[in-house]
Design a protein around this nucleic acid. Structure first.
Ligand code: MN
Ligand code: MN
Ligand code: MN
Ligand code: MN
Lengths: 218, 218
DNA sequence: AATAATTTTTAGACTTATCTAAATTTGTTT
DNA sequence: AAACAAATTTAGATAAGTCTAAAAATTATT
């Protein structure tokens, strides 16, 4: 039996480790979980004892296959609930994250399978992130971050890295949503801001925006 | 801020106290929560400190107005989720209780209001229990228990007291559901079993069934 | 009204997840 | 290679919720 807190740590490690592929250090986990390093160490030990992670003192942590399965399953639930909230309950994409953070921990296979079917097996969540299927498989979108896009090329917005209300509302008020066409006009070397062309406007976005917006070549 | 455990105790007290009207003793609470009396005492003290309940040592406990509001709100959420599971996700009435027990603790006013609207403001849950509205008001159905029904009178099944899988599946396999017409044919004094007439069958049910099935005169 | 039975509370202990402060290990610089 | 800095772990505390065993209060019975 796995606790809610263990699930949250496993999910955090999964994201920090680039989908379970890389080693993660204690401080990064503590920061992601908004706790202290000592708390992270305690939990890492526990996850290791329960075979969710491999851990050697001072050497960081990696998820085991068992740990990765747990992580992907929680992510599946999180993203399906996000779709439900937006598609069925009139939530906006900046409102769903916090509620999904709790709904993702409800344990019922039937619930999540039926929800998946009810939503007609969605493949992506409201932020453009892929939804793993029942077996944990999902397709990796070939996306790049706006900051690394090429000048003059036409892209489509396919995702965001930051799902905070502040960032998503910023995008809303600037007419950027999933599917929006974007052409990079100019990159300012001084502050790494980027001038982009939208359908009927041209705007300048800061580096932090450019680093959190994912695009795909058309 | 209220914890999940506090919410569960408050709900249990509400049900044990006949909707917040009567005094409840420690042992009853412990039994309902499947814990020991000492644990119940600790929690009662805490609920009292937080003004969810009035408590005098050895004299039992009653919910305050604040406590009742919390209880009714959780019951509202529990029952709305049960409707959702049955109406939208193909759950049967014997499958919903356990999942709703967890969903009821998700904290989001928007979530529950939108869910209510999405379900078109249902007034009763899959077990025939009334769903409180946003302000905590709900109509009390004028129901009687089968054990106290009169012989020869036509009734309609409007609810159950026991929501366990075993009991609900028993009803399913005997052709009894919400809305089923029932006429009492005979009450056996020896074991308090009851012979009832359904649409095209006549069956005998035990006292424990008769005490858990609610009827309404047509 | 005294005794017995039942109910309830208290005392002390355990677990989970957290914290601060101190100790240890690793890495970086001179 | 020694010293310093940064990252990590350990030690000891705390809060929530639970437990067992024992003490206290209430209720029932003679
Ligand atoms: Mn979570
Ligand atoms: Mn998302
Ligand atoms: Mn519950
Ligand atoms: Mn119900």
């Amino acid at each position: 039996m796995i606790t809610l807190t263990e699930e949250n740590y496993i999910k955090a490690i999964y994201h920090l480790s680039n989908n379970g592929t890389e080693n993660v250090n204690t401080n990064a986990i503590a920061e992601a979980m908004s706790t202290k390093a000592s708390s992270a160490t305690d939990m890492i030990k526990k996850l290791s004892e329960k075979n969710y992670a491999d851990y050697k003192k001072y050497q960081g942590v990696t998820l085991t296959e068992k740990g990765k399965r747990v992580a992907v399953n929680i992510i599946r639930k999180h993203r399906l609930w996000e779709v439900f909230l937006v598609e069925k309950l009139n939530f906006t994409w900046d409102e769903v994250h916090e509620v999904a953070e709790h709904l993702e921990h409800i344990k019922s296979d039937k619930l999540i399978d039926e929800l998946d079917a009810f939503l007609e097996h969605p493949t992506h969540d409201p932020h453009g992130d892929p939804i793993p299927d029942k077996d944990g498989n999902f397709q990796h979108i070939d996306k790049i971050v706006l900051a690394k896009a090429n000048i003059g090329v036409a892209y489509k917005c396919v995702g965001v890295d930051d799902t905070s209300t502040a960032f998503l509302q910023y995008l809303d008020s600037n007419g950027i949503a999933l599917g929006t066409m974007i052409t990079v006009m100019h990159k300012e070397p001084y502050d790494n801001s980027v001038k982009i062309q939208l359908k009927d406007s041209e705007i300048v976005v800061s580096q932090s925006v450019a680093k959190n917006l994912y695009l795909k070549k058309i």
